[in-house]
Design a protein around this nucleic acid. Structure first.
Length: 329
DNA sequence: AAGGTTGACCGCCAGG
DNA sequence: ATCCTGGCGGTCAACC
């Protein structure tokens, strides 16, 4: 297969984790796992010495001119959303985009794409912490701060830090399939597909208050008792709140609704059970709190675009015995 | 396939 | 004034 070239923009004071995400996903040779070999070019997005926020410096011979060789350009966050990116970088991004190169941003890299004008009128996301300021500064961008990433074809944006991994996995999944993405996910030891949006990761500014604590304790308990049938009323009773207050507090604490949160947790559990062990779909459905295998199949397929049994097959990739997997080197 | 039932979600308002 | 709570009821979707 023709090697796809990925240009990753490095800039001064870059956070090494952000730089590492695309390099970790695309930069390793996983051809034995059945993946194509990507060509990763770390490109200096500005002249001068590039230091990282961890103190070491980056030396690369690639620069903006090398965008020309890329199929995809990734902007792995930005040092400071309030710090305007250099015009030369913005111009290079625009030219690449006009040539048909896909432009991807991680975290607050959306600010760079927006500054380049690439997000005008288009759907996008960014780190939840900056979402409000982003929306105020770029009102024409259809910002959705609830999701982990937004794939708008030639432009892809993603939410904070680790969502960059979700986003990069998505890029692999959409082009090379679920199986390929799972190979990478396994190697990185992350979930192949996280459920729900970034809302569930948004911490409340005052987490320790006694009242939020009640929801927190409940969530922990729920996660250990997913198989039981829960209703809004039974849970509200459990934390001694009225139904209305409970739904409100729940949303404030989790950023989502009870139903969505529960379903996401149940699906995540079902995924884990499918990935390991040989339990029947029926058993797994029951263990994860679904009323029936039919119900599990329906929700699972809708959320992941793969049926449970195909997910299991794809995740395993190939027959495994004794915990060894041919894809893992 | 249509219709009924149930439960979840949330806007709204009144009261603390 | 501001925030929170409890209750009502409309809408929607899942399930039967």
């Amino acid at each position: 297969m023709q090697a796809e070239t990925i240009a990753v923009v490095a800039y001064d004071r870059i956070n090494p984790f952000n730089l590492g995400v695309p390099c970790g996903v695309f930069g390793e040779d996983r051809t034995l796992g059945g993946l194509p070999r990507f060509k990763v070019l770390v490109c200096a997005g500005e002249p001068g010495i590039l230091t990282t926020s961890a103190g070491f410096t980056i030396a690369t011979s690639c620069g903006l001119k090398d965008f020309r060789r890329a199929d995809t350009v990734i902007v792995p966050s930005w040092r400071d959303p309030e710090d305007d990116p250099p015009q030369a970088l913005l111009d290079a991004l625009c030219r690449a985009h006009e040539r048909g190169t896909r432009i991807v941003s991680l975290c607050v890299g959306s600010y760079v794409l927006a500054a380049a004008g690439l997000l005008e009128g288009r759907p996008a996301t960014t780190h939840w912490y900056w979402a409000q300021r982003f929306a105020a500064r770029y009102p024409n961008v259809r910002l959705n701060p609830q999701v982990l990433y937004v794939d708008d074809g030639d432009i892809v944006t993603s939410a904070g830090t680790a969502a960059g991994i979700d986003c990069c996995l998505h890029l692999i999944r959409s082009k090379y399939g679920v199986k390929a993405a799972n190979v990478v996910a396994r190697r990185l030891v992350v979930q192949p597909h996280r459920q729900g949006g970034q809302a569930q990761y948004i911490e409340q500014p005052v987490p320790g208050s006694a009242k939020d604590e009640r929801i927190g304790v409940l969530l922990e308990w729920l996660n250990r008792n997913l198989r039981a049938a829960h209703t809004l009323d039974s849970l509200a009773r459990r934390v001694s709140m009225t139904r209305r207050t409970f739904t409100r507090r729940f949303r404030r604490a989790t950023g989502t609704t009870l139903g969505k949160w529960l379903l996401a947790q149940q699906l995540a559990l079902a995924q884990r059970l499918l990935e390991s062990g040989d339990r029947s779909i029926d058993t797994i459905a029951y263990a994860a709190g679904f009323g029936s295998a039919t119900s599990l199949r329906q929700h699972f397929t809708r959320a992941l675009q793969v049926s449970p049994s195909n997910y299991r097959k794809a995740f395993r990739g190939r027959p495994t015995r004794g915990g060894r997997d041919g894809e893992i080197r």
